[in-house]
Design a protein around this nucleic acid. Structure first.
Lengths: 363, 363
DNA sequence: TATTAGCACTCGAAAGTCAAGAGTGCCAAC
DNA sequence: GTTGGCACTCTTGACTTTCGAGTGCTAATA
């Protein structure tokens, strides 16, 4: 349904103002702010129509207007001015991202923390489900009681573990195991590692001390960890500064949903491609707990043909424009760093160590 | 100053009751609960004295009594019955700890999350400052563009990184670098790694491609990370279910202090030894933000001659007894797993990967 | 026909009032 | 030293009142 140009301007003004103040906005305020030269009375007529069209609502008869989810949707799709970050701002983001990613590991939680700091809302970072295999297998013999397992994964990470044994092992045995694992366990997925395979390796290596199973356990553990999509959430506490979460119960419900590793995405939707930013407004969310909050999502190229997500959660009255701009810049920076086989900048190599939040952790 | 036996009983009853209900407790309630056969009037007299001694206070003239920090202190030191966990409970803790630690990495955040779940308060886990060195150094040559760095640390961890280069390297060069690093970079602390050392290694290896500095950077990064004391905090949101944090501003202040990696400990106090549990009540905390909260801390043996801390933060009206019992059990379990050079149980090896929370993250 | 000024009306938020109840402090009696 | 009794205090919650922002409608106007 088409809407007059003026109605759009008014709707935009209502949303902008409401985002700014969190208070229902009245006709007078609009008459001043939106530069269309007409009186409050005229605006009131238009507002009444916008209400009956479903874009706005009134908390009660004699209050100002508040956008409905449909109103926000219209705003996000057509009305809001796409905010461009200034050059300094986007360089700032790059710089901070760089500073973080130079650290080892924990990229995911660093990214979510950064997103939260940038936007001042709770933020999350997710990795996609993924099928990682072992590409190469090394055992380093240290001494009779000690060796190191080094796995090179198809995701271009190396994972290692120091194993100390209460018994002595023969260097020969370690070498045998190394080459057996290299032929038997490379290129296989997590599911293909069967007790059968482990047993036959154990026999072939002539391993009577159960070392094979220790190694196999590490391989499995590592693959499981690398395959599990994982999430990191930061800055839940920032919810509390939003007036819509002044009710501690409401805040608590959402926060514990989030820190329980809440599932933000519609399960089928997958992570879509492109650097586009996706906005889920209020009831558009599947999770009951999010029905009156909004989520802004941006996806990034995590290399190894997978994509990850960064998102921000806030009240429906969220500064969509600013958040979208920042997330999109952050996602682009991340993609540049992690993605696409390009040689990354000096000293930086693909690494996005997957980090587990236990999804059973909800309470 | 000595206090009559009866006063102690009464004080204990007040604290117990207040912990349970969060409401000021009156003389009548005590007369019933504490099994000392005397009337409310008698109790009132005693209460008045306890107030003037500083153990209790009244929110206003005609309200029940509430413990002061000094009252809690007395309670914690002498009065509270040391709660013993039932065998099932402590086995439950062990079991859950085990389930978590079998995962790779992230031990710290798993531990804090577990502590928070057990106690239903926000919890944190800290590692001590630490001086880790490289014990052994391996380079694995993969192909002309790829090699793997494997560091074995004095903390009995192995850390590895896959390095892909845009240029080709000679296998010989990799070997030379491996042995040079093994002699030059083992046993040295982070501070001892100087540009001088790096330069001389580079020259000795005849490395014209800057590979030495890539490796040295990884060594430095790894040591820095391993040496940095780090903290993980979980379950901040649980604060919101405490009536004393119904005020969102108050809750917000404390939560952002905590998730900013707040410094809980008096800077000089160090982490003390022993499995004792330490309680900091209200104003005993140094941080302004904690002045009206309490902290319960337990230290664990993190192996490698260092100790770590687990702690729980809550209102001064905290169930000290239960929290102390749980933390102490958890710390003991952890110590058993990480500490003391003992061979850990099947499949478990020393690993407490240090995980960074950026201390500059405060806002 | 679209816009505007004017005005009565509505409703929520904030302030004020009041009664009920829990708990005290004190006194006199045991 | 302990207890029952009683007047007093202070908070809490319910109820009322007031105030003001904002509306919807109508009639006048461009």
């Amino acid at each position: 349904m088409a809407i007059s140009e003026r109605k759009k301007k008014i709707l935009a003004a209502v949303v902008d103002e409401y985002i700014r103040t969190a208070e229902p906005v009245g006709s007078k305020a609009i008459a001043q702010s939106a530069g269309l030269g007409c009186s409050p009375a005229t605006i009131r007529n238009e507002l009444a129509e916008l209400v009956s069209l479903g874009y706005l609502e009134q908390p009660h008869t004699s209050a100002g207007r508040v956008p409905t989810p449909m109103g926000y949707r219209m705003y996000v799709n057509e009305l809001m001015e796409k905010q461009k970050l200034s050059l300094e701002e986007s360089e700032e983001i790059n710089r901070r991202l760089n500073a973080r990613l130079q650290q080892l590991d924990d990229a995911l939680s660093d990214v979510s923390r950064l997103a939260s700091q940038l936007t001042d809302y709770p933020a999350l970072a997710l990795t996609a489900q993924h099928t990682v295999t072992v590409q190469r297998f090394d055992l380093i013999y240290v001494d009779a009681n000690t060796f190191i397992i080094v796995l090179t994964l198809s995701s271009s990470q190396a994972k290692s573990k120091l194993v100390r044994l209460p018994i002595s092992v023969d260097q020969k045995l370690v070498q045998r195991l190394s080459s057996l694992f290299n032929s038997g366990f490379t290129g296989v997925t997590e599911e293909q590692i069967s007790p059968l395979l482990i047993n036959s390796t154990e026999r072939a290596a002539d391993d009577t001390m159960g070392i094979t199973s220790v190694i196999a356990a590490f391989v499995l553990e590592t693959l499981t960890e690398a395959n599990t999509p994982s999430a990191s959430i930061s800055g839940e506490n920032r919810l509390l500064s939003q007036p819509e979460f002044r009710d501690p119960d409401k805040a608590h419900r959402l926060m514990s949903y989030l820190s329980g590793g809440g599932y933000i995405l519609p399960p089928n939707s997958g992570l879509d491609a492109g650097d586009g930013v996706k906005v889920l407004i209020g009831p558009e969310n599947v999770a009951e707990e999010l029905k009156d909050s909004s989520v802004v999502l941006a996806s990034y190229d995590a290399g190894d043909n997978t994509r990850g997500l960064i998102g921000v959660v806030g009240p429906t009255r969220m500064d969509y424009s600013a958040v979208a701009a920042k997330l999109s810049c952050l996602a682009a920076s991340l993609s540049r760093r992690l993605g696409g086989g390009e040689a990354p900048p000096e000293g930086m190599h693909n690494k996005l160590i997957i980090k587990g939040d236990d999804p059973n952790d909800r309470r």
